[in-house]
Design a binder for these strands. Structure first.
Lengths: 162, 162
DNA sequence: CGGTTTGAGGATAATATATATCCTTAATTC
DNA sequence: GAATTAAGGATATATATTATCCTCAAACCG
């Protein structure tokens, strides 16, 4: 059970977009270069964010992406689900139905007990991600990334932001 | 991010093994038949349980599997990790290192802030699974499965248990 | 206007993982 | 000795992930 690498990419890209001044856009090309990622494939992750309405886009030179909401209004779960999908990690195929001791046509009143536990764990995972906002990440980064690197990075970004 | 179907299979098989009387074994063949699963492939899941020391095995006719510990001493996490592996669902590839604004040879003092959040969620998932014991599942099933099906199933199982 | 840049999205390929089957071996039972 | 079992290796098939390429329409720029 491994998350797509696009999840990591999307989270880092959103952290950069969160630092963009009001009204400006950053292109796939710049985001790919900044993170050392394949531009074409990163583009798919950014398209997922766009489809989830987490980012706005505009075309043309000076076009690209910006956050569609305040970073305090975007959770980790929003971003992870945009890329990874909303499906649960455990799929119940109801193998209890294959039990030869069951009367034909018997119908279960509740979802399988095994699945309920697995879904509870899945929900605990989602809850954790739901509670962390993109703004929290930016806050942590601004404390932990050395000030000169932080500053240089946003200079680099602003030089490329349309 | 989807768990292998073997996780579901292993959990259901353990629930059956938990109901086996002291000292008796149940074969792959019986477990596969009971759940309508491909015997050869289910065998791989059971081998994983064996390698994790969750079950004991014995060979020959009347051979098969039994729990190696009390069902109250086996957690969902034990079983899930035996089949799925212990690796975290989020892999940090440290893409921050590709930032062109970094001084050459700069070394991070902490793991990436993005990864820490993702790992925290992963740990919440594991915590939930760690807190549920196999005996809890058996308890739930014995309450929810209609008594006649429950009884017939264990009659069926005992007829095949060595 | 015409050339360039951008994101959207479709087609395709390469790679990795999950699913499944088959076969051999050694231990156990009868 | 014959049948049955789990362990584990080899291999095949299906699906998912990662990646690249191409076309299109919108936006910008001279």
């Amino acid at each position: 059970m491994i998350l797509k690498s696009q999840v990591e990419w999307a989270l880092h890209c959103c952290a950069i977009l969160a630092g963009l001044p009001e009204g400006r856009y950053l292109s796939t090309k710049a985001l790919a270069e900044l993170h050392g990622l394949p531009k074409e494939y990163l583009s798919k992750a950014l398209q997922s964010l766009s489809q989830a309405s987490l980012v706005d886009t505009t075309l043309g030179p000076s076009g690209g992406y910006r956050l569609a909401r305040l970073s305090s209004e975007i959770s980790f779960l929003d971003i992870v689900e945009a890329v990874e999908g909303k499906a649960r990690s455990f799929t119940c195929t109801n193998i209890r139905e294959n039990n030869p001791c069951r009367p034909a046509g018997y119908c279960d009143s509740k979802p399988c007990a095994v699945a309920r536990v697995m879904w509870e764990a899945d929900e605990a995972w989602r809850d954790t991600l739901r509670r962390v906002r993109l703004s929290d990440l930016v806050c942590t980064l601004s404390e932990e990334v050395p000030p000169d690197i932080w500053r240089d990075t946003f200079e680099w970004v602003l030089k490329r932001a349309g």
